[in-house]
Computed example of a mutant assay.
Amino acid sequence: MVFKLGAYVGELLVRHAGGVWADPPAEMGGWPVVKLPSGYYANPIDKAFKRVDNGPEDSVVSFWAAVVPTSSGNPRRWFRRR
Rank of each mutant, 00 (worst) to 15 (best):
A7K: 08
E27V: 07
S71T: 10
V60I: 14
K4F: 13
L13K: 13
G18H: 06
M28T: 02
R51H: 14
G6V: 00
R77D: 05
G30C: 10
A66T: 10
T70R: 12
G55L: 03
L13W: 04
P44I: 03
M28F: 08
V67M: 02
D53Q: 12
A48M: 04
G6M: 00
L12I: 15
F63Q: 01
R76Y: 11
V14E: 08
D23V: 11
S71G: 06
M28K: 06
N54D: 14
F49E: 06
P37S: 01
F79L: 13
F63Y: 09
G29L: 11
G29Y: 08
V20T: 15
V14I: 10
G29Q: 08
K35R: 15
W21G: 11
V61W: 00
P69I: 06
R81I: 15
E27N: 04
V34F: 06
A7F: 04
P37Q: 03
R76C: 05
L36S: 13
P32I: 04
S59L: 00
L36K: 04
Y41W: 07
A7E: 10
V2G: 02
F3Q: 13
P25S: 07
F3C: 09
D53V: 01
F49Y: 15
W21K: 10
V68W: 09
K50G: 03
G19T: 10
L5F: 10
S62C: 05
K35V: 15
R51I: 00
V68L: 09
F63E: 00
A42I: 03
V34A: 06
Y8L: 05
P37T: 01
K50Y: 12
F79N: 04
W31D: 15
T70E: 12
W21N: 10
P56L: 13
Y8E: 02
Y8K: 05
E11R: 10
A17D: 14
G19N: 14
M28E: 09
F49S: 02
V34Q: 05
W31M: 13
G29V: 13
Y41L: 08
P32E: 09
L12Q: 08
R51E: 08
R81D: 15
P75Q: 11
K50R: 14
P32K: 13
L36H: 06
L5C: 07
D58N: 09
P56K: 11
P44V: 03
L36D: 04
P37H: 00
A66S: 13
R80H: 14
K50F: 06
V68P: 02
D46T: 14
G6Q: 00
G10W: 01
S62A: 12
M1W: 03
A7D: 09
V61Q: 02
D46V: 09
P24R: 01
